[in-house]
Design a protein around this nucleic acid. Sequence first.
DNA 1: TATATTAATCGTATTTTAACGATGAACTTT
DNA 2: AAAGTTCATCGTTAAAATACGATTAATATA
Lengths: 106, 106
Amino acid sequence: MPTAKTENFTDQQQRIADLAKALGHPARVAILMHLFKTNSCVCGDIVEEIPLAQSTISQHLKALKKVGIIHGEVEGAKTCYCINPKVWQEMKDVLGQFFGTFTGCC
Amino acid sequence: MPTAKTENFTDQQQRIADLAKALGHPARVAILMHLFKTNSCVCGDIVEEIPLAQSTISQHLKALKKVGIIHGEVEGAKTCYCINPKVWQEMKDVLGQFFGTFTGCC
DNA sequence: TATATTAATCGTATTTTAACGATGAACTTT
DNA sequence: AAAGTTCATCGTTAAAATACGATTAATATA
């Protein structure tokens, strides 16, 4: 029974895990890559690019939004998604620092 | 029904997702941090450090082993775990490059 | 040799993810 | 006003993840 974890781990550990988990599915990686490519903000034509149902893409977008990596703006009937540079930088920092903690042994 | 993904995504996308997913749980982050601290290789006293059952820790270790981030060596009755520097570097590279792809917009 | 320790694996329960189609709300276009 | 787009959400299903205790195999110690 997957219990609440917040208790047992530090905020830092939890944040690292949350950010990493958001990248933990190839569809979400693909979505982000697509947002890179079309470096202006891009709307739901993500669905065209990725062979998954519209509702599934929407779910993945929601997951990315939840940790703050992306941000959606309603523009008429469409919604424009873009990467949140602030959180992207945070992720770079937090994970980069984590990666750098290990310098080598063994 | 979570279908096979290998088909729809590139190897790179899949690898990024697999590596990220391995970091996608605070217990695994905590395990890795513990391996950093005790920078010589360290055995199952991880169980002492993290408030989870032995079998659960074992499962998390298995997950980390699966992507190659850590590596266990049997030493008598105990097992000594350490980070695989090669894979750690790969992770740094692969994810670092991914992070760097986005330079900013919006 | 008998007992204890270590850690992987098994079996199980619960929760979360991932996927889809269908529906519905909001905005556009005709 | 009516019909069409767009996209979030709902409901559902199946699979994977998470957690635990119990068991087992291996090694170590008494």
